[in-house]
């Protein structure tokens, strides 16, 4: 499946629009990571554990979006957007959405 955040696919024609598809994932960190992050908060720097965690959940949101696109018979998702919101203290929702299309 072709994924893109452009509104067109270079050199390919869009045959059918199948509408919006979306995927989301809500995750929280575990206490060990939180403890290390607490230490890091004194010294500053990158929180690698969090970077990893958010990447995993973003990938999961993308996968869910892809699964939805496959179920409606699309072969590409274009104009993909991501959004992140922290819905509770220590939990974040990663959301991905885009337009499912059939390419020629």
């Amino acid at each position: 499946m072709l994924l893109s955040n452009l509104e067109i696919v270079p050199g390919r024609q869009i045959k059918t629009h199948l509408g919006l598809v979306q995927g989301s994932s809500v995750r929280t960190k575990h206490i060990g990571r939180d403890f290390m992050a607490g230490l890091k908060n004194i010294f500053g720097g990158e929180l690698k554990g969090y970077t990893e965690l958010l990447r995993e959940s973003r990938d999961e949101a993308l996968e869910r979006m892809q699964a939805q696109a496959e179920s409606v018979g699309a072969n590409a998702v274009i104009n993909i957007r991501f959004s992140t919101s922290s819905i509770a203290q220590g939990a974040a929702e990663l959301f991905a959405y885009g337009t499912a299309v059939v390419l020629e």
Partner: peptide, 17 residues
């Protein structure tokens, strides 16, 4: 015609005291 791919990069960065 080129191929296309979605690419991304992310980082979580903490403030210090």
């Amino acid at each position: 015609r080129p191929e296309t791919a979605l690419v991304s990069g992310s980082v979580v960065i903490a403030e210090d005291y």
